[in-house]
């Protein structure tokens, strides 16, 4: 079975490095980006299956980044990552095509479950 390609986007380098390693240990193929431009570059270069996207990243608003990704390829599934109970942004993200959202600090089991659900949705097309 091919690995799910995950792109992890958050401005905290240490957070992305640790979480990426944890996901890799669970057999996901993970790339990381620490700002919106870097993330979009990786989306165009190495189309991921699932993107974990922090709503507050430097360079571009998280929601704008989400819209740009969905416009480029609507089949890429995006899970929003939020560090706060930002209900408005979560609602806006969901209505802009996000698959799911998850709160920080992340429960690894909850995150992998959501990634797997997103991958299942992609496969079922």
């Amino acid at each position: 079975m091919s690995q799910t390609k995950v792109l992890l986007v958050d401005d905290e380098v240490e957070f992305t490095v640790s979480l990426a390693e944890r996901l890799q240990l669970r057999n996901y193929s993970v790339q990381t980006a620490n700002n919106a431009l870097e993330a979009l570059g990786l989306v165009y270069k190495n189309r991921p299956d699932v993107i974990i996207l922090d709503l507050r990243i430097p360079g571009m608003d998280g929601i704008e980044t989400l819209k740009t990704i969905k416009k480029y390829d609507p089949t890429i599934e995006v899970i929003m990552l939020t560090g706060h109970g930002d209900v408005h942004s979560v609602k806006e993200g969901m209505s802009s095509g996000a698959f799911e959202y998850i709160m920080k600090p992340v429960e690894i089991g909850e995150l992998t479950s959501k990634i797997d659900k997103a991958q299942k949705k992609i496969k079922e097309g």
Partner: peptide, 8 residues
């Protein structure tokens, strides 16, 4: 954010 990094 700090807590999230420590947790990860």
């Amino acid at each position: 954010n700090y807590i999230a990094i420590v947790k990860e």
